[in-house]
Write a protein that binds this DNA or RNA. Structure first.
Lengths: 108, 108
DNA sequence: GCACCCTATGTAGAGTTCCGATACAGTGCC
DNA sequence: GGCACTGTATCGGAACTCTACATAGGGTGC
């Protein structure tokens, strides 16, 4: 499973509450990813065993909308996603370097 | 300039101390990126005006090694890199979700 | 009926990015 | 000559991203 920014966004959205499954359109709004990016990411994550995909069991006519497909991280997905996101977070320092003032001039 | 993880790693390495230029092999070690990834990234960043590349002025024979090419963030690069990295950091939560115990059982 | 827009999931294809392999060149050692 | 090391850099195929587009049913307006 190669880590990319779209993958990280999806994992972060699902990891916010691993017990709470999300569906595609929901994840599109949460992550800001277009469907053409999101769905391939979800398929790759599923192929890697990091998440499961289950169709909602409703009657689309009665509900007045198409059935959703709910995605939920597996135990393995949770285990793998956390250190991966932590590594990303480690790239960016708490605060920017402080030897440059807001005007752009060196602080010395 | 599209933000990707390799780009972010390079920016993070250079942003750690924007006054201190780095050369290729140095950045390979700092970021863990292979040369086939790093150099294209550096070229893209240079094309975008985010960094400058200057050859070290030494005599390779006297120095006993090839000349290095030093890369340094421009003012624009520093300005652009900081919010870009901050955005990456924002994707990853401070701490993992706390409603799951180490055993995997829900905390409630 | 028909033109839209909304909720949903998903594919097609062009362009971009990644990364292992390879190239090039000089130094040092045996 | 052969091998290791320090450097920079490209090639090419695989992988990834993302703008369109496809599909399909519901609802609204005319």
């Amino acid at each position: 499973m190669r880590m990319t920014i779209p993958v990280a966004k999806v994992l972060a959205a699902l990891l916010a509450d691993p017990e709470d499954p999300r569906y595609g359109l929901d994840l599109m709004k949460l992550t800001g990813l277009p469907s053409g990016t999101l769905y391939p990411v979800l398929h790759r994550l599923r192929a890697a065993g990091w998440l499961t995909a289950d169709w909602e069991e409703i009657d689309p006519v009665a509900a007045g909308r198409p059935a959703r497909r709910y995605y939920r991280l597996t135990a393995e997905g949770v285990r793998a996603a956390r250190p991966a996101l932590a590594e990303l977070r480690a790239l960016a320092p708490d605060r920017g370097p402080s030897n440059v003032t807001p005007t752009g001039a060196p602080a010395w």
